[in-house]
């Protein structure tokens, strides 16, 4: 069901007929006719269903500014290498930039344990089934993270979203920068199939590039599709385990910290 969101072939006109079908079958419809005898009132509202989430996201952003850190929201499919990239990033920036991590998963503490082993403040958010993190979860998570050892000195906060290219794209969690990842084995058609994750991101990273010789994956194809959706998208190709392309990623992070994390 979720995979349908980004496919672009959804027939809106067709789906519109459903509520009518439902209403006709529904016994409540009779009540509705009856209700018309009473005085009714029409109110213009014009508020977004994301209004509550977006207000909380703005609060998170203000908190991050006040605490002098930059927050990055990592979005990708499951298994594209978000946690591995974080592990290698933490190793590379050790002693230079204070990193903190909020891990989002449906179940288990596994990712948080992997990151904690690297010695940085980490908390795990388990959504218990929800396919994305929202601003309220991140708000609570950040409060918890601040209480962890070293949680007050974070300059660079990674929020690893639930592995999913669809739903996380719709929820602002208060991040300053959104990074979308696609790994080589997933195939180059992800930007075309899940456009929202790419249109709402600032940076697109292709991971596991050491596997390029073994897969039918042309980076140009993926990058072209992504740029078509979002011409301003910054792009990178890397492999966390071999270190290939990591320099560009690390200098991008250093720039972000310089840009956002100065306010005291």
């Amino acid at each position: 069901m979720c995979d349908v969101c980004g496919c672009g072939s959804h027939d809106h006109d067709h789906s519109h007929s459903h509520p009518h079908d439902q209403n006709h079958d529904h016994t409540h419809d009779h009540n509705h006719d009856h209700d018309h005898n009473h005085k009714s009132k029409t109110v213009d509202v014009e508020t977004s269903l994301f209004a509550t989430n977006n207000a909380l996201a703005d609060t998170n952003r203000e908190d991050f500014r006040e605490d002098g850190l930059v927050a990055i929201n990592l979005i990708s499919s499951p298994g594209s290498g978000k946690t591995t990239l974080l592990e290698h990033t933490i190793d590379a920036l050790k002693g230079e930039i204070n990193i903190g991590v909020i891990e989002g998963d449906i179940e288990t503490e596994r990712d948080a344990e992997r990151i904690r082993a690297k010695g940085v403040p980490t908390i795990q958010l388990t959504t218990g089934g929800a396919c994305h993190l929202d601003a309220a979860m991140v708000h609570k998570g950040y409060r918890r993270l601040c209480k962890e050892k070293g949680g007050g000195d974070i300059q660079l906060l990674f929020i690893e979203n639930v592995g999913n290219l669809v739903c996380p794209a719709s929820f602002d969690i208060g991040e300053d920068e959104r990074v979308v990842l696609v790994s080589v084995p997933e195939g180059p058609d992800k930007p075309a199939k899940y456009p929202k994750a790419f249109s709402s991101s600032q940076t697109f990273v292709i991971t596991k590039c050491d596997l390029l010789p073994y897969f039918d994956f042309k980076c140009e194809d993926a990058l072209h599709d992504a740029k078509k959706i979002n011409p301003h998208l910054r792009t990178m190709e890397l492999c966390s385990t071999t270190g290939e392309g990591m320099d560009a990623w690390l200098s991008y992070l250093r720039e972000l910290v310089k840009k956002f994390a100065v306010a005291e």
């Binding site: 209700d35 009473h38 005085k39 009714s40 009132k41 029409t42 109110v43 213009d44 509202v45 014009e46 508020t47 977004s48 269903l49 994301f50 719709s170 929202k196 249109s199 709402s200 959706i229 979002n230 011409p231």
Partner: peptide, 17 residues
């Protein structure tokens, strides 16, 4: 590029009694 504003979900009007 998509023109901004097309990714929101807006509650426009409610009729009640």
């Amino acid at each position: 590029t998509p023109v901004s504003g097309g990714n929101d979900i807006v509650l426009q009007q409610v009729e009640m009694e």
